[in-house]
């Protein structure tokens, strides 16, 4: 599942090393456009519905955080 997230991230921003970085939002690596596109891709890939209330920095700062969010929404 994590691999799939990394795959989505790689198509979004090929130049960023996502395995290293844990402050993607706080450091401004992902901007609001990236977030919106990313949410669309994740929704499609995992058949979930990420809502506006889930758009918090702590849910998108790292691939691991995104994984936790997806698992929570799937349950």
């Amino acid at each position: 599942m994590l691999d799939k997230i990394l795959e989505v991230l790689a198509t979004l921003r090929p130049e960023v090393d996502f395995t290293e970085n844990h402050h993607l939002i706080d450091d401004g690596i992902l901007d609001s456009f990236d977030i919106v596109t990313l949410v669309g891709e994740l929704n499609d890939a995992f058949d979930i519905e990420i809502g506006v209330e889930d758009l918090l920095p702590e849910n998108f700062n790292s691939p691991a955080a995104m994984l936790r969010l997806i698992e929570r929404l799937q349950s």
Binding site: S32, N43, I50, V52, L55
Partner: peptide, 19 residues
């Protein structure tokens, strides 16, 4: 504007369908 207009708008059903 980002948190209260842009995000809700671009994640709304209408916009997903538009995409």
């Amino acid at each position: 504007m980002r948190d209260y207009v842009f995000y809700p708008l671009s994640l709304s059903r209408l916009f997903v369908r538009m995409g």
